[in-house]
Design a protein around this nucleic acid. Sequence first.
DNA 1: TTGAAAGCGCTAACAG
DNA 2: CTGTTAGCGCTTTCAA
Lengths: 339, 339
Amino acid sequence: MRSSQVTIKDIAKHLGISASTVSRALKDHPDISEETKRMVKDLAAKLKYQPNALALSLKNSKSNTIGVIIPEVVHYFFSQVISGIEDVAYNAGYTVVICQSNERYVREVANTKALLAQRVDGVLVSISKETQDLEHLHNVEDHNIPMVFFDRRCSDIEADSVLIDDFNAAYQATKHLLKLGRKRIAHLGGPMHMDIGRLRKEGYMQALKDFDVEVDEALIFEANTFEDAPGCVQKMMQYKNPPDSLFAVNDLTAIGAIQAIQNMGLKIPEDISVVGFSDGRFSNIINPKLTSVDQHGYEMGRKATEILIKRIKEDQREYDPVTEIIPGTLIVRDSSVNR
Amino acid sequence: MRSSQVTIKDIAKHLGISASTVSRALKDHPDISEETKRMVKDLAAKLKYQPNALALSLKNSKSNTIGVIIPEVVHYFFSQVISGIEDVAYNAGYTVVICQSNERYVREVANTKALLAQRVDGVLVSISKETQDLEHLHNVEDHNIPMVFFDRRCSDIEADSVLIDDFNAAYQATKHLLKLGRKRIAHLGGPMHMDIGRLRKEGYMQALKDFDVEVDEALIFEANTFEDAPGCVQKMMQYKNPPDSLFAVNDLTAIGAIQAIQNMGLKIPEDISVVGFSDGRFSNIINPKLTSVDQHGYEMGRKATEILIKRIKEDQREYDPVTEIIPGTLIVRDSSVNR
DNA sequence: TTGAAAGCGCTAACAG
DNA sequence: CTGTTAGCGCTTTCAA
């Protein structure tokens, strides 16, 4: 047994007093004499006593812990969100348990289960791309554990969410291209079973409509990875009426497209203007610099956590979920404007 | 009270049997009749019973939890490490609690305390840039909690560590340039008060020495950010004997340099070959693709966690710490070789 | 001003 | 095959 862990009992024994007195002394209970307090505190310090949070959690049936289920930490956006979560949680005295689903449904289910077992006080979730069945999340609801969605929501579940205004941001991005005089705007998007995929596409289409540009389905692809992009580009560039610009659902896809375009000897932004989404560390670094939508990940993490902690503190069984929409910010760079 | 949490007792009461029977039935104890097992399991499923991990941890004085103290999640390298940690921990049935120090000493101390209170079974640490005083880490040792350092070690503390072979990787990177016939190799490096900065510079210098190329201090800069790089480049290119290549301490610095070089109308790799370090998501994405050293963050996370879990399982008070060195892998791409 | 006892949820002897 | 009991570490009535 490793546990050289000092307990309140140990302190009590050493001092020939009761455990409850020690407990009270440690938290400056007014009933306890100054002398006892001193004694107890001194010994506690000497023995490096560390309160056992597990025992406390068990007793209070609250763990002061927040669970996070996130697709992948390695995405810059998500790691920003985590930073936001961490900062708020830390300041409010909560511990954060982060679980990655790796975009896999089974893993998300397992994570949820683990968090439930851990008796987290609340859960922050961004669902995986695979997730369709929602039983595990309903399960969280059933246990009356507050849950806040961030970035990727489940519209079938009534819960608070913090989202970016995907529709509008996509609208702005497309409008930006339209205002540059582009008419044949391709869209690499999806996944269409997710809100973010659908909404961004809808924003794109709405902008076209508002500018009286016909939607051409041949310019719309379900393609949302770096690897997906080149194939689509090659295909489109063989049309007799190829695109003059491109709006991608995320930056990596945009970059994949850019490289394919450049490899065909075409110039960006002159021949084809490109706009990405979810302003990452890349946007500034590639050549040409990528126009993109800043998703404000850190802010999103903060907001979601603030809401969650509020819910935890309120401790209401029923409440009207709020949806906080963070506007995306279009950041115009070289990939869509001539210098 | 929110807790609509079902306990073993509830199940027992519903079924008119004892709690221990329920407990045993749930874990397929051979003593329990099939019939009882069925009853119990069915009801447990119906009531969505979730075992309380806190109670278990308290009982067993082990939490099946690993604590991680990491400078910043938003660094691609660290997020890769986390992925490695998560994967191994997940497969071994451990929960991972991640704390960011944000490179701040006080925060690191607070994190350590929280993890200790949480009774994590082991700790993975990469110390912050600020950390000098090590009491909080000694505290972990005192509590007999296994600790493994990754990437950034504390040489004053006897603990397992998993590091990358910075010296040798830098040596290889420099040698690669030398073998291409480059002689005027600049180095953008640092910070010199950290092992990584120092060792990479030393590897660079050793390679020059071994190839009988004179070290020119005018080609060495303490510059390790994207923003630092352009200034150095501009300065060097005015020398009457300017560099023909460049080795940077990290990719972002390399990329900053590349852009400055390109902006001066020079070609990469023809005029100046560039090598980075810490192969990030960028390397493949910029133009030309960047030659860099893969630091194997994922692998590092895996290794560190494997060692830690081994230590936890061994449960020995004393052991000889191991230091695992992961060799960096030079990945040659277009920035240092003509296609 | 302090102590004794009960209980948070669970399990593992020990008894039947 | 099942129940009783005790205890993990802590807090909190209630009693002294």
